[in-house]
């Protein structure tokens, strides 16, 4: 069963701003990254999945249930961590998390027990009786994560969970997200920090201006099918040498894009070609290897 399926999903705000444009995706379970620049439609998609926004067109199925048919029933199975502020600063962490468990339909006594356990999980057990107003940003983010999972959801939606965190806090948050997979909780989290997605997710959905750019598993960076080489000297000589060795090349100024098409040890191939003509190397790396490259390529193609 897919986590989320959308069919011709569209949404506009007031008939003017098109947030989602004819989106057709099938997203499998696991940890899914929702990537895109600000305004790409990430939060809109998350809110439609929760049934908080009614789409202008199309349909969404989450965990096998149509959102239009049973949004409230679905929300018992989904946890949500909003991006912005969402904590009552005059409550203790334990009280707030227990209350959100009760909202998810867990009886009062069990809710308090689960709140304590969940706060332990996110590293706030000692601080659970402190007021949320006294918490640092990093601690507040962890409380937000705790409230999203305390109700034992099948799917948790995290909207920019690492936003506003320092590097250490960010790493802790990503660790916690990775652990959710071990607990059998599906995660869908939005971020515009591509590195976070690469470190955490096994599937990526990339949006741009409400349109789908990519919906595919995340592959390791080395699996890219192109190598980018910037040389000091005549690039045509290097390109010819590479063609002779069975590679396909595209020259753009001093940069040569090498499509190796299954040729192994392409880096060795480039080194050999450079050595043959005694041409210097300024930079070499996989292109289309990272999410960032993909994103930048898309941006470039879009102009």
């Amino acid at each position: 069963m897919n986590l989320v399926e959308t069919t011709s999903l569209s949404h506009d705000y007031g008939g003017t701003v098109l947030a989602l444009d004819n989106l057709n995706v099938e997203i499998p379970g696991g940890v899914v990254g929702l990537v895109g620049a600000n305004g790409a439609g990430k939060t809109t998609l998350l809110r439609i999945i929760l049934g908080l926004l009614h789409p202008s067109g199309g349909a969404v199925t989450v965990l096998g249930t149509s959102v239009a048919d049973d949004a409230l029933g679905l929300r018992s199975r989904i946890g949500y961590m909003p991006e912005g502020k969402c904590l009552p600063l005059d409550q203790t962490a334990a009280d707030f998390v227990a209350f959100t468990a009760e909202l998810a339909g867990i009886p009062s006594t069990e809710a308090r027990r689960r709140a304590s356990e969940t706060l332990f999980l996110v590293g706030l057990h000692e601080e659970r009786f402190r007021y949320l107003g006294d918490f640092s940003t990093g601690m507040q983010q962890r409380v937000k994560l705790a409230q999203s999972i305390v109700g034992d959801p099948d799917l948790v939606l995290l909207d920019e969970p690492a936003a506003g965190l320092d590097p250490a806090g960010r790493e802790q948050m990503l660790d916690l997200i990775r652990r959710l997979r071990e607990f059998g909780i599906n995660v869908m989290f939005s971020s515009h920090i591509l590195e976070d997605i690469e470190q955490t997710c096994d599937w990526v959905v990339m949006l741009d201006a409400g349109r789908l750019v990519r919906n595919a598993p995340l592959e390791p960076p080395s699996d890219g099918d192109e190598v980018s080489v910037e040389v000091i000297g005549d690039p045509e000589l290097v390109a010819t040498a590479l063609i002779e060795r069975g590679a396909q090349t595209f020259v753009d100024g001093q940069v040569i894009r090498v499509v190796h098409g299954g040729v192994e040890d392409v880096f060795d191939l480039v080194i050999e070609a450079l050595a043959e003509h005694e041409i210097g190397l300024r930079r070499m790396g996989t292109s289309l290897s990272s999410l960032e490259d993909l994103f930048l390529k898309h941006e470039a193609e879009r102009g």
Binding site: G105, P107, I149
Partner: peptide, 23 residues
């Protein structure tokens, strides 16, 4: 301690309203 899944009954929307009242 890991994560403990909840196997018990859920109170649904009525439980959520009751929680809002108590809070």
């Amino acid at each position: 301690r890991g994560y403990r899944h909840y196997e018990g009954e859920r109170t649904g929307s009525r439980g959520a309203v009751a929680a809002v009242v108590r809070e």
